[in-house]
Computed example of a mutant assay.
Amino acid sequence: MLAIVTGLIGSYPLGGMTFHYIQYLLGLQALGWKVVYLEDTGRWLYDPCRPTFTNDPRYAVSYLERTMTHFGLGDSWCFRDPGDRWHGPVAGNLGEILPRVDLFLNVSGSCWLRPEYRSARKLVYIDTDPGYTHFKLAQATGDGADADLRYSFERMAEHDFHATFAENIEADDCSLPAGPFRWIPTRQPIVLDLWRLQPPTRPVRFSTILSWNHYAEPLQHGDTVFWRGWGLRSAASVTSSPQEYQRYIASSGAEFSVAKDVYTITRSGWFSERTACYLASGRPAVVQNIGFTKYLPQGSGLHAFCDPDEAVDAIRSVQANFEHECREAKRIAERHFDAATVLTNLLTALRL
């Protein structure tokens, strides 16, 4: 069986984005699939060294070469840059590969679904950012939709199956528009062998990795920036490679994080792929409850909060029982995010 997995590894060459997509490839490979990574977005590329978006593919190609080789996939990738030039070892024979593809996983809807890609036996759209996708679909299928919205809908409708990280979709307490597709709930697959349980160390230092928008001026002391009690580090320094990303998580005591309004208001049941990586590293998480507690255990290892008081109580619990919390975090990852289980469930739903 042959699978093509799409993604944004070259478009956003950062450690967290890499793990988001690479674990689909490695997870399918472990299940016996032959895999190819294909990236073809038609968009400009983020260059973290500048930092800006550019049509220059040199950094993206170099990052892909290093990263795919590191994960044992050095012969199994191709990349189409904004100038329509192909890169990577598979690019030269992609035309021979495409007619033999059993599964085309369009993760994050990241791939420009060109006609030649549609020959795959199963075309699958995986929505990893629920809310934005579903409200766009509701607009696209409503009265007065403009040409761009209709085009987006038509491209999505070309897929045979549609999966989403909104595990709570169609539930009574979820306000996401469910139509017009039949959504298959899924979650981030975690390749557990990549994430070793790191010995816990005190004091417990909470961290997270995301874009913070703030409304007050941060304070700077030496090389460290502080904002409302948080020390802020440049994202480039902790996400410049998959290895740096893992080291940063492993050096943390636990994760504390909030979610976007679109996740919380809709009660989508989305669960962050970043938080799943914290858990897999044996790092407990205190995160905002957006409906995932119906599908994942909470308590030791994973704490969901709805207000500041609950968050404080959860942080204190992690601090008081840290070693136990670390072991439970790892167990949650093993039981609920193991790529073998997550992907087998998805393949079953796809009738593969």
Rank of each mutant, 00 (worst) to 15 (best):
D47Q: 02
A3R: 15
L2A: 10
T348M: 15
S110Q: 10
R155K: 14
K260N: 13
G16Y: 01
G16N: 02
E154M: 04
E116I: 07
Y12A: 09
Y263I: 02
S110L: 04
R335W: 07
W270N: 13
A250T: 01
G15F: 01
L38D: 02
Y125V: 10
R331D: 07
D309V: 12
G27R: 07
P199V: 02
H70Y: 11
D127V: 09
E310A: 15
G229H: 07
L105G: 10
D160A: 12
C326D: 00
Q188V: 04
Y263E: 13
D56G: 09
S257E: 06
F181A: 09
S300H: 06
L352W: 02
A120V: 14
T264H: 12
P308A: 05
G253F: 03
P57F: 05
A340K: 12
S175W: 02
G10M: 04
S11N: 07
Q220F: 11
C111A: 13
R202W: 10
S252G: 01
R118W: 12
Q246G: 01
D146P: 04
S240P: 03
L192I: 12
E65R: 08
R150C: 02
E323F: 13
C174N: 05
Q298G: 06
A304N: 05
D47H: 06
A120H: 09
N213S: 14
F181S: 14
L14V: 02
A304D: 03
L113K: 09
F135E: 08
R283M: 00
H303Y: 14
F79G: 06
T348R: 11
R228A: 10
D127P: 05
I22V: 08
W183K: 14
F322K: 08
T344I: 12
A171T: 03
L45Q: 03
E273A: 08
F256E: 02
E325R: 02
E325H: 07
V5D: 03
S268C: 11
V5M: 12
R114C: 08
Y245V: 00
D47K: 07
Y59M: 11
F53G: 06
T201S: 09
R327G: 07
D102Q: 14
R247T: 02
P203F: 04
C111V: 13
L2F: 10
D40R: 04
S11G: 01
W44C: 07
A333P: 00
Q139C: 11
